[in-house]
């Protein structure tokens, strides 16, 4: 249980931090797509007897770079590029799963299994969290500028397109850590929901990140507690706790206005 909590908190922290940029830049659809497109990578790794983390990581990075490349070319809009990559990769994952006799083997991949978190997963989640926090700390001012005014970022040579690609790659890393905790189908929630709850109130990116981390950690803690006591699916409990936080945040803001 301690291991599950730690894995959940680490995934929650890095997803919440990067989620602020994903939500604010209206890239939530991309976040949602990422959590689905990791499926073929995970299934491939599972069938090969390799840690699913590496399979998920490979598929997520391929998605991030693929969507970035496709949408930079002007033949296809970004949302269409994401839609095409999402459905194609997910279908590939389902096809690979259908080659195996039982879908039950993949329950943990799809819906998460915090009880199956190994020590190695914790190290990987810890490394990703350090990497994400370090990247954000180093280039936050350029990320901010590229988000609020990409043209000016380009004028001063801060390369907003590269900022965007970097953001996609960091997001891919964050989603992969979340997949272990809440499963492929619900990993988006850790990326989007705490950030969305925080941004309802935020006056600065730093404030939004801090609030999103608190919402995320609270959701993981409450979700695991409920899951433990009532024998609920841990992933679903965490996501529902985050959704409740968003609901309260939004409602209070609406009433206040």
């Amino acid at each position: 249980m301690q291991r599950a909590l730690l894995a959940g908190l680490l995934a929650g922290v890095n997803c919440a931090v990067i989620g602020v940029y994903i939500v604010q830049r209206r890239m939530s659809f991309f976040g949602g797509a990422l959590s689905h497109t990791v499926l073929p990578g995970m299934v491939f790794a599972f069938l090969r007897g390799v840690d699913v983390f590496w399979g998920a990581l490979g598929a997520a990075l391929a998605t991030a770079l693929g969507v970035g490349w496709l949408s930079r070319r002007r033949e296809v809009g970004e949302d269409a590029a994401i839609g095409v990559v999402l459905s194609g990769m997910f279908a590939l994952g389902v096809l690979m799963m259908s080659q195996v006799n039982s879908f039950r083997d993949f329950n943990a991949l799809l819906f998460g299994s915090v009880l199956g978190v190994a020590a190695q997963d914790l190290w990987l989640a810890g490394a990703v969290t350090i990497l994400v926090l370090l990247a954000v700390a180093l280039i936050n001012k350029e990320l901010e500028l590229a988000s609020v005014d990409p043209e000016y970022a380009c004028v001063i040579g801060a390369r907003p397109n590269r900022m965007r690609t970097l953001l996609l790659v960091i997001t891919a890393l964050s989603v992969v850590t979340a997949v272990r905790v809440v499963g492929a189908l619900m990993a988006t929630a850790l990326l989007i929901t705490p950030a969305a709850a925080a941004l309802v109130w935020a006056r600065s990116v730093r404030g939004a990140m801090l609030s999103a981390v608190i919402v995320s950690m609270l959701s993981v803690f409450v979700g695991l507690l409920v899951s433990y006591h009532y024998d609920w699916s841990s992933g679903a409990a965490i996501v529902l706790a985050a959704t409740a936080c968003f609901g309260v945040s939004w409602l209070v803001r609406v009433i206040q206005r």
Binding site: Q24, L145, V148, D149, I156, A158, A202, R203, S204
Partner: peptide
């Protein structure tokens, strides 16, 4: 220096007036 048109900025971004002006020093 380039002064863009008003519509080219994401004014909904959570940023203070002071911080926005400071972006002029980033170069």
């Amino acid at each position: 220096a380039y002064l863009p048109q008003h519509r080219d900025i994401d004014w909904g971004f959570p940023m203070s007036v002071r911080r926005f002006v400071l972006t002029g020093s980033y170069i």
